[in-house]
């Protein structure tokens, strides 16, 4: 395979997750392993390569449900909203706890809580639906990303 400059890139499997990379005249050892994504370590950087079809499928499922999902395994500390309640973008809708940190989960947009998918005290897994949002009547539906955990709000305890 070639990159734009025409320099050849060779990859030689060395076994046990190790790969010799020869990029032009530069040689490096990379490491890689596959789970759902492929993880690659090269020169101090880590890349996760998601299979395009698989990634698109996962994304569209989340969009369809307009659900807020858990970004990581965590315990639900508090739920600040109930079904039918209007929320605004950036409202703290619940608080998760993971690794001794409190993680406030904020609403990614304005909307109405359709359903709450977890209980206080529950251990939720990544991708688990925390909350479903629906649009107030007559408004345009926007895609919903994963739960947003804004900077500087991870409170150490």
């Amino acid at each position: 395979m070639s990159d734009q400059t025409g320099t050849s890139v060779e990859v030689i499997p060395l076994g046990n997750g190790r790969y010799q990379v020869v990029n032009g005249s530069r040689r490096l050892i990379a490491f890689a392993v596959a789970s759902r994504d492929v993880w690659v370590f090269l020169d101090g950087h880590v890349y996760t390569i998601t299979d395009r079809a698989d990634g698109a499928a996962r994304r569209s499922r989340i969009d369809d449900q307009a659900a807020l999902t858990a970004p990581m395994p965590a315990t639900v500390l508090a739920i600040n909203v109930a079904p039918g309640q209007r929320v605004e973008r950036n409202d703290v809708v619940m608080v998760l706890e993971a690794m001794k940190m409190e993680l406030p989960v904020r609403s990614p947009r304005d909307g109405v809580v359709k359903a709450v998918g977890c209980q206080v005290g529950e251990l939720v897994q990544p991708g688990a639906t925390l909350l479903e949002l629906e649009e107030p009547a007559g408004e345009v539906q926007l895609p919903t990303p994963n739960a947003q955990l804004p900077k500087d709000e991870n409170i150490e305890r």
Partner: peptide
């Protein structure tokens, strides 16, 4: 090279 490795894996 990373996408190449990923394809190889």
């Amino acid at each position: 090279e990373v996408t190449t490795i990923a394809a190889l894996v």
